[in-house]
Amino acid sequence: MRTDVFLKRVQERGQYPTTQEADRAARVVLGLLGAHVVGEERAELAACVPETYALILLNPLRAAEPLDAERFVRATAAWIEGATEQTARWDVGAVLSVVADEAGPDLLRRLLLQLPPGYDLLFGRLEPV
């Protein structure tokens, strides 16, 4: 997927006024996600996003422990200047729902098996995958 297409989709989902805001959300969310998924699934996910974001997924800071969905949202808020938990939840949903669409149901299911319960909602899935 081309970077401009990816950012436009995140911008639309997040209702951001600029692609710069969509980019900021994507960098933070994918950086945090990359610290929580490993192996073949992380590599496959990286292949679904533009190279800039793939590098962020593949070279994250290491997480000391897995974050449950709520703590993931709080961590996102901590990394985005001026964000609240509510706005961070919006950012996470905008980015991860686009990522879920690109990943497809099989890869998404395998990713969710690596993550604590509750991430299905962050990926915009109302029912477990």
Score class of each variant (00 low, 15 high):
residue 23 D to S: 13
residue 45 L to M: 15
residue 85 E to F: 08
residue 87 T to K: 11
residue 91 D to W: 01
residue 48 C to M: 13
residue 8 K to M: 11
residue 105 P to Q: 10
residue 72 F to E: 08
residue 113 L to T: 12
residue 7 L to C: 07
residue 10 V to S: 12
residue 126 L to I: 08
residue 45 L to E: 10
residue 97 S to C: 04
residue 126 L to E: 13
residue 45 L to C: 09
residue 81 E to R: 10
residue 17 P to H: 02
residue 66 P to N: 07
residue 113 L to I: 10
residue 41 E to C: 01
residue 121 L to T: 12
residue 49 V to E: 00
residue 54 A to W: 04
residue 57 L to G: 00
residue 57 L to F: 03
residue 46 A to Q: 02
residue 16 Y to C: 06
residue 20 Q to H: 10
residue 34 G to W: 02
residue 124 G to I: 10
residue 30 L to I: 06
residue 106 D to I: 11
residue 42 R to F: 02
residue 53 Y to D: 04
residue 66 P to V: 11
residue 128 P to K: 11
residue 81 E to L: 07
residue 68 D to R: 12
residue 9 R to T: 11
residue 27 R to E: 14
residue 17 P to G: 00
residue 79 W to D: 13
residue 26 A to L: 04
residue 13 R to G: 00
residue 112 L to C: 03
residue 101 D to G: 15
residue 80 I to A: 01
residue 68 D to A: 09
residue 129 V to I: 01
residue 59 N to P: 00
residue 89 R to T: 13
residue 112 L to T: 00
residue 111 L to S: 01
residue 34 G to T: 06
residue 10 V to M: 12
residue 45 L to F: 10
residue 18 T to W: 04
residue 37 V to C: 01
residue 83 A to M: 07
residue 62 R to L: 12
residue 55 L to E: 14
residue 106 D to Q: 13
residue 86 Q to W: 06
residue 121 L to A: 15
residue 64 A to K: 08
residue 61 L to P: 02
residue 7 L to P: 06
residue 37 V to H: 01
residue 108 L to D: 02
residue 19 T to E: 14
residue 93 G to R: 15
residue 31 G to P: 06
residue 27 R to P: 00
residue 118 G to C: 10
residue 23 D to T: 12
residue 8 K to N: 14
residue 119 Y to K: 01
residue 20 Q to L: 11
residue 101 D to T: 09
residue 86 Q to G: 05
residue 37 V to M: 01
